[in-house]
Design a protein around this nucleic acid. Structure first.
Lengths: 140, 140
DNA sequence: ATAAACTATGAAGCGCACTTCAAAGCAAGA
DNA sequence: TCTTGCTTTGAAGTGCGCTTCATAGTTTAT
């Protein structure tokens, strides 16, 4: 069993965030001491890490809550949850596609600057001239 | 030359967002008619799409502005910009890693539900039992 | 015993990225 | 001409995800 501070250290979140997540029902009810101090179990810590993983992938807090709500309602919601997870996988793939696109754009830019640096004459372009030059090199 | 509404339709943004982006200096100054109505050129539209692409990859508005500011300051800022772009590419890779991780987690969950659906007896697990069962199948 | 550190709570605050509103002017069709 | 719709502006509002604050109680070390 860990104190609030320990749990925070173990997960890299702050105690405030942990309290916030609990209030938002992203965590199961955390055990308390006689004096109402929170006691986080190893299972709690793992659960927190899962939530953290979802948050890092931009899953909204509301969605996480919904999912967990279904989870607490037992086996009858399995197919519903399965659907949610599938939907989310689709979303992740589309997010990845966005990143890929931006990555392609920025990498092209980077390469473009590399070339530009090698031709000192090109360094006095206005930003619109540069933009046009950039556009003319291979389209996205 | 396109009206505000046309530009909005072409980019999938709202006119309000276009005005907001302009105010935030993400767009070059948009031409105006005699009556101060905006006139978007094809180049403007493409520029907007680039901004949109960066936003879809979660590049903060402040960063886009900074980048564009450097852009307007000409060739002397090229190496600085090159650095920014490189830094951003790194960030994109790390975002992708986060998504991959969440994807792995959710896909594992999905597979798990697939199996669960085939054993009706397992459908009355409490959420903690399910969680423990899930954890015990291959670690992440 | 007392100070320093930790914890609790509810409420308020904050930064971001928009969105909506109010009041006004312009434009185009019936 | 009148009405409907588009555009303008600044300002205020919204939703999200925390973070900070004020106040108060608890634990620990000296």
């Amino acid at each position: 069993m860990y104190s609030a501070k320990e749990a925070a250290e173990m997960t890299g979140l702050t105690t405030a965030t942990l309290r916030y997540y609990e209030k938002e029902q992203l965590l199961p009810a955390i055990e308390r001491t006689e004096q109402r101090y929170r006691k986080y179990s190893d299972t709690d810590i793992e659960w927190i890490k899962m939530v953290q993983c979802l948050r890092m992938a931009n899953v909204p807090i509301r969605s996480i809550r919904e999912y967990i709500l279904l989870l607490t309602q037992g086996g009858k919601t399995i197919s519903q949850r399965r659907l949610m997870v599938q939907k989310y996988i689709d979303d992740l793939h589309s997010q990845m596609a966005n990143l890929q696109k931006a990555l392609a754009l920025t990498e092209k830019k980077l390469e473009f600057y590399g070339k530009l640096l090698q031709s000192p004459s090109a360094q006095d372009l206005t930003y619109l001239e540069e933009w046009n030059l950039f556009k003319s090199k291979g389209d996205s």
